[in-house]
Design a protein around this nucleic acid. Sequence first.
RNA 1: GCACCCAUAGCUCAACUGGAUAGAGCAUCGGUCUACGGAACCGAAGGUUAGAGGUUCGAAUCCUCUUGGGUGUACCA
Length: 656
Amino acid sequence: MQLLSLLRARFEQALSGWVDDPAVHAQRVTLARDPRHGDYQANIAMPLQKTLEMKPLDIAARLVEKLNVADICQTPEIAGPGFINLRLKDEFLAEHLLAALGDERLGVGHVSPLTYVIDYSAPNVAKPMHVGHIRSTVIGDALNRILRFLGHHVISDNHLGDWGTQFGMIIYGYKHFVDPAAYARQPVAELSRLYRLVQQIIAYQAAKPKMAAAYDVVRRAKEKKSELQAATTELASKQSAKHKADLKQADKELRAADELLHSLTEKVGAVEQAPELLQLAQSHPELEQCAQLETAKLHEGDRDSLALWEQFLPLAITEIETVYRRLGVEFDFTYGESFYQPMLEGVVEELLRSGMAVESEGAICLFLEGFDAPMIVRKRDGAFLYATTDIATIEYRVEHFHPDVILYVVDHRQSEHFSKLFAAARAIGYDRLELHHISFGTVLGSDGKPFKTRSGTVVGLETLLDEAVERAYQAVCDPQRLQKAGIEMSHDEQRHVAAVVGLGAIKYADLSHNRTSDYEFNIEKMVQLEGNTSAYIQYMVARANSILRKSGVELDAAALDNFALHLQQPAERDLALQLLQFEDALHQSVEEYYPSVLASYLFGVAKQFATFFDQCHVLNADSPELLRSRLLLCHAAARVLSQGLRLLGIGVVERM
RNA sequence: GCACCCAUAGCUCAACUGGAUAGAGCAUCGGUCUACGGAACCGAAGGUUAGAGGUUCGAAUCCUCUUGGGUGUACCA
């Protein structure tokens, strides 16, 4: 049930006929921040003091008078400058939690459905998936699951990068550098090697001519800095603020120059230190243009290029699907960029025809209000860009799926692109379609920089998953530990538990962080089985199930008629209250599309369950009624936690 | 240069979008337990919310400036 909207509705009633927009003010009923103030609080009186020209305390008093919540709450209390504090009645909690348990969906109602398209994961199929792909995949998947569970109509679409420059590189690499034996043996690995090879050489060729200039910049920056420093000693006594700022600026410039030089040196060195690479680089000058040419040929429909693309694509997709299968992620559609390719020319023509797009410096551009740079939909050389594809994609989705909302789960670096895209969509006339960029931050290593290995290469996602599962295995399936817990597990069960715990750990670490902030990827921490981790929550589910098993009581819907909840101890009451807030947590979590809201709700419930079963013994309860009541709480906690985890794409096990 | 994002406890993060004494988890220190699986529970300590102004009944949150970081910025995706 939705406690919040129930309470808000009552406040709206009390306010109607008194203030202008009662619903807006009723929104100011929230969970109490501090439990000493009750369960919920209404911060309604204070903001109204001006419009009503009354003292907040008087407003609160009158509001409480008009308020009809006797069936839900104890007598409301007024505190501080005019807060109204509410405490739910124990009988109310007991009755509704019991009702929720009789329901398959734990009392979660169906919303009036909207149609959503969620666009997430969208890896570039030419590269192996890496840690950066986790966020989009996991956040998108969680939103997909939650929205569906609430009753929305959701279409999940994996907008694969399967048509861009990267294929030009692969095709070029295949034509010139392929090792046929390796390709026959492990085609995916060989293609990925070719891709990296071409990229490396391109990087080398781009870096090489810049070296001299970079040295120069560093030298000048050094000179400038030492000049300023020399001046510092002379002027020591009367150093001006300006001089300080200059020095700082010089230092900054030097650091930037050093960094650039360093990165160039690395790229050049990587090739020059390997004779065979150097030879390739020299025998294939201007590789970037050559690769671009391959891309262009593919886009123009060159038969050989297309044949190669058709040969490579399924290989790459199979590889990606292995990862999805492991993660338990599914899509309704996997329309990559290539799918929209036939529409692109029409899109541009239509934009030109309607006058929205114009030619500028040879390119076809949309000059959108509020943006300096235009959105380019066709390059000078005639090629289309991802902006073109994105517009075509909106058109296709509108025509075929009739969405109310499209969500793009894509990292924050593309926010400007999406602002432009959405502005373009509005200009085209999609003004009733809601478009949201569900942006998220970067995954960082422990050095605070984007996550990489010590050697600087990105870490493959599969490797990471393996490591998480292995660590989970070490921790959970430690023979001593299992023996102490009195659990005998087959090898298969152990591997299964390790997989559920390990993969859950990676997903949960991601989902429990506010999506907009960067977060530090620390595999050691996330697989740890204490603290705010999925393993802790999963463990509480296992403990609850263990108690239920031991009791020998079947808690099916029919049996519930003979059960009642007695909320005597604070720990029991608090648990019941939190369990009943499940539906609110779900709604709040999709309101602005933050799975972290659900994650922290679940952690709260798990902690409260731990407190409960520490303080309230279940199987040795004082009376049969209390035993049954506490069994119900275990049952409810296990169900809410497993359902909640499932909605985050995380599994649970019977025992661990 | 311009635009956007960020700065909260030793560390990693919250704060229900302007509400009461800013909360969790690690780590630290102390305590509980002859019971349902100790991967537990309870408690303490830890903060001038980067800094300075402003807006109002009330600011971590909104506005301005400063400092320090990140990202993007006309033909990559």
